[in-house]
Write a protein that binds this DNA or RNA. Structure first.
Lengths: 220, 220, 220, 220
DNA sequence: GATGAATGAGACTTCATTCAT
DNA sequence: TATGAATGAAGTCTCATTCAT
């Protein structure tokens, strides 16, 4: 028994979902290339090989398809790099899992280089609804990361700290480094070293051989 | 002797620079509020109390004034928070200077809350020239920060590391935390504690009491 | 023996005429509610529970179904209120028959309140064919009424006059009063009194106790 | 000293009001010819010799100019034919004034034949605001006419009656006759006779030589 | 006959930019 | 220099109608 929308169209042989998907695919490429405002509905339908009116059978307005493209992208990012860990295992395992997630995240963003750049450049600047989408994205990944930090604290791998703040610290460092990496890969170490360098920075900071520990630096 | 454009206009009593500035001021407020696309040239001239055509006596196109608003804003940010340090002094002095810069940066961004949000939301999404402006902004502040890290390494306060990468790490953490702070100040510690928590994270990381040092965690 | 189109459809169990009728019924309601331009073919087919394409198996275009709805409505009106009288009987009978027709007309229009309002509001404004339909409607009812007046003249109940002109006079008074009645029933007497007041106005005018007869008023 | 908008435009030499008027003039002709829906903004601006965008400097939307055309037309009609009379003078004077108004009304409507036909055909069918305009039109003229009837009653020229109802009766008869006259002038007497025939019908009705008076016809 | 996805012409509206005074 | 009416390209969205299955 087929699903509701699984019946292929009489004329085109595409199901409703397939057609919708082909519009989304066309839109993703065009938005990634030219951004929201320089991409017209006409561009999208031409790229998807349908008439202009067809667009409005699948999306109520131009914004909606942009919204959808971004939503799917952000879900992909969340899925790739943002994983709820278990409060178990050794410190090595804990860090190792984090390491794997980071590498996976880099892979996904690199595979969607243009889309990533566009998404973070235009970010939330055109719609309260879109702003809300981004806000929720950051909130969700921050909560997962804060949760992971709490687990780390329980395990003793992480020292007590303001977990939510540190979650945003981690998100920010990854975000900025990734965006620079996508522009100038030649300025950065290869993926594995890059990940390690960042993990280490997060784990034990940058204190040098002659730097006194924080409690001596600032006794207050 | 007055500068070339210092002669006040017969009708308006404003010098050319003053008029230009009043357009920029009006534009800044409107862009901050509504973003680039929802602000019309008409809005700007109405807010600045000049006729529409006057706009084009001071700016060649709408993008230019946006570009200028962003440029001034980014310069302000650079000036506030990004200072080339001296490779001298004690570790305490080194960190103390960083601390002062961070607090100053928070002050400036908070004072320009709406503009900051808008600028980072719309970011570079509408023009190669604007994209280039942002790219240069990040490159410049990254270079300053990398330089400071090199100094820290020389002083022994900072361990040897990939300075440029760590510069982006620092930029990212500040950027993301700031943007969240502007949205949800109630989720974060007050400024001084916030700065310390971040400095400490950068300085000695989050390693907990039972976390082994990195070289033991990953002997490779 | 069944008529040509009386064979019920295998799938739907409806004869061609029944299906056509259900489209007309749906259209009548929608047109009455929203008028011609705000009612889409999609609205109609959805309300009639058929696919959009089905519409064009029964009507060649959207206008046609509107035309048909109006035609049926105008026929209903004609049938209800416009009756050819016989040139026989007493004055009382003559007036009494007129009175019955008027009451019947009010009933029909009141029962189709929305449709009546819509029909007279949009009237003939969208199509020469429709314009012609309305023109014929007025001509036909005017001719019947003129005929009745001629009978009245023959009976001596009605004075000699320009019968066609007076027919339009009667049509106009009924039409306008009816349309106002449908909007503001509270401004008018109840049906029977309303009819009598109008009949009397038509029959002996509004001349007051001190008003001289017309031939004295205007001796020419 | 000139009025606010009396300064002619630098480029075109037209004041704002003149330009607006030329758009209205163009629109009136086109609407009269083709109705609302078949007239495009493009048609209007082309006829007025301005660019399409200019339209929106003077009207917020297409409906607005239609609304304005109808409003001006209805005001013209009101002004021409709907005059508040004085409760003074002889019956002859009273009727004579009515007669003059009626003739004036016929002149105005005949001079605006196409516009009149269009206006009454499309009537109120496209907008609540327009519906309201028409509703108010009818209410206002009905109130004036009802007032006049009250005066007539005071003078004894008119018998006591439901004045508002009779006002609508009069409006309807004039309206319908006028619309038929505009279509088929050959079916009707010349203006002066037409007016007299209608006045007489309203004044003393159509009772014939053998028709008993109403109170005998219907003793109830 | 019935379906409903697809079509595409065409309408309205916005707004950056120009230019005659 | 300042004005602000005028421009017109361009974009979004609607919907009557078609047609392959």
């Amino acid at each position: 028994m087929r699903a509701v929308n699984a019946k292929p169209n009489a004329r085109t042989g595409l199901t409703r979902d397939e057609r919708r998907q082909s519009l989304l695919d066309a839109a993703r490429v065009l938005f990634a290339e030219k951004g929201y405002h320089d991409t017209t509905v006409d561009d999208i339908t031409r790229a998807a090989n349908v008439a202009k009116g067809t667009f409005y059978l699948y999306f109520t307005e131009k914004r909606e398809i942009y919204y959808e493209v971004i939503r799917v992208f952000l879900d992909l990012v969340k899925e790739a790099g943002v994983v709820v860990q278990e409060p178990t295992g050794s410190p090595t395992e804990f860090v190792e899992r984090t390491r794997r997630n980071a590498r996976q995240l880099i892979r996904v963003l690199t595979e969607n280089r243009q889309l990533t750049r566009m998404a973070f450049r235009e970010a939330a600047g055109l719609d309260p609804r879109l702003t809300e989408l981004w806000r929720r994205f950051y909130r969700e990944i921050a909560e997962v990361e804060a949760q992971n930090l709490e687990f780390g604290i329980q395990l003793g791998v992480v020292r007590p700290c303001h977990a939510l703040l540190q979650a945003y610290v981690h998100i920010g460092m990854v975000e900025r480094v990734m965006l620079e990496l996508l522009e100038h890969p030649e300025d950065f170490p290869a993926t594995d070293d890059l990940v390690d360098e960042m993990l280490r920075a997060g784990y034990e900071g940058l204190r040098g051989p002659y730097g006194p520990p924080w409690n001596i630096l600032f006794p207050g």
